[in-house]
Write a protein that binds this DNA or RNA. Structure first.
Lengths: 245, 245
DNA sequence: TAGCCTGTGATGTGATCACACACCAGTTGC
DNA sequence: GCAACTGGTGTGTGATCACATCACAGGCTA
């Protein structure tokens, strides 16, 4: 088995018209990253990915440089890009930032959101609950993300949205991979309803607190399953930590 | 005059031992960006910079890709990298995010800061005031930045610090260039003292509010001098907007 | 004189090659 | 038997080349 891109299906991106090749490569890697196709700690090599994607090393080089700059990949000491390992300590810090940023976005959204957006968020919220009921981790993850970003997009703050996306890109690989490994409990989903309620009544501070509670609620459960240190991870054993307590 | 890197002095980065060349190129461009050596809206070309820096186009290509990913440069429609033009609307949004992020950092710093760090911040604060008295915009800018980051570093939150650095990198070019153009008024500097006071008494929420006030105070003055749209900027005329009202 | 048109230069993009370094295993020496 | 050396393989890095595209200037034609 080649060391790079264990879960990445072979593709061919060479024939896509006008958009630059490195852009497609970037999107492809990013997509697979969010979908949890890469194991945290796994090495991502230039030529390995180039072979998988059917391109030369050059577009991959640019895509990796971009992902490293966005902190979606880590640059190890030997300059090899690796999928970052989110430790419990790092995740706790990330959640503090998320509460600040996503709380602000929810606050702004409460004052600017339209009824149409509200209805769409309601539907997404129902999808999330349904997926949670079915223990369908994959669509839960996708729909939950879609619902949250529908809220944040309503804030009409592109820079803020951009930064929130960057954070989700960082934690996406680990969380999604975690949900592939650990049986999804079907909890959460109840913390989404207060967000919609606050939004519908246009209460900014209530929306902020609802988002903060949603993030905190997920955190206290997740940190138990995250590794405490980023050493000896990504060798095929799994995410580590206290998997069964 | 070549179109790229108008204010960038010729350098030679080729002989620097072990660190990769593209890393040095990145640092060099970033340094010049923060120092206001590039005009907002100015085009930054591959071969132009390569010639200036005495390297081939390859390291420059990677450095630019990285800076674009960090939003320190914009990628125009014709795929040419440009120094971003921070409009007054964008700056207002940035300040909201800054208040959320830097406020959080100040809050955390108040609980973790050491006396030695507090003394160092005190000294930097004095330097800032002295530079403001002398109307010395360059050192005011540098010392003010150093002082703020000394506070944020005391929060012991590397991810948070990283994001704050990213934001300063975005607004640095415009603000610094603005201060080169417009006579620096010597205001501000009085808003730094409350930050230090709150830190010294370990009052987190007070530190947060002091930082928020510092950011808002600078904003209301700056937005008047920022352009309202990013069109027709960077053609050598200047930053635009209502320069003399 | 006005409008179009083409040639030319510059730009980003992608491929390919050569090189230095790191890692890993096999071998040789003690 | 164990340690140190040594070879090969794979890695990122940087240079160079070829190509498509775009902007603009200059000249041509109507």
């Amino acid at each position: 088995m080649p060391s790079a891109a264990a879960g990445l299906a072979d593709t061919n991106l060479s024939g896509n018209g006008d958009t630059p090749l490195h852009e497609n490569v970037y999107q492809e890697i990013r997509r697979n990253l969010i979908a949890g196709q890469f194991q945290p700690g796994e090495a991502v090599t230039l030529r390995g990915l180039a072979a998988k994607l059917g391109t030369s090393a050059m577009p991959v080089r640019e895509a990796l440089r971009r992902l490293v700059a966005e902190r979606a990949l880590d640059l190890g000491s030997n300059r090899t890009a690796r999928v970052p390992v989110v430790t419990s300590a790092k995740y706790a810090e990330i959640c503090e930032v998320r509460i600040a940023l996503e709380g602000l976005a929810a606050d702004k959204a409460a004052l600017l959101i339209s009824d149409a957006e509200l209805d769409r968020i309601d539907n997404l919220c129902a999808d999330v609950s349904a997926a949670a009921e079915r223990h369908d981790a994959a669509t839960y993850f996708a729909k939950n993300q879609e619902m949250h970003f529908a809220v944040y997009r309503a804030a009409r703050a592109p820079l803020l949205l951009d930064m929130i996306e960057g954070i989700w890109l960082r934690i996406g690989p680990t969380l999604n991979y975690l949900f592939h490994d650990i049986r999804f409990a079907g909890r959460a989903a109840a913390t989404n309803a207060p967000i919609v309620d606050a939004l519908r009544t246009r209460q900014g501070s209530a929306a902020r607190e609802a988002v903060a509670h949603d993030i905190s609620h997920a955190m206290v459960w997740l940190v138990q399953h995250l590794p405490q240190s980023d050493e000896h991870v990504g060798n095929g054993i799994g995410i580590g930590g206290n998997k069964e307590s």
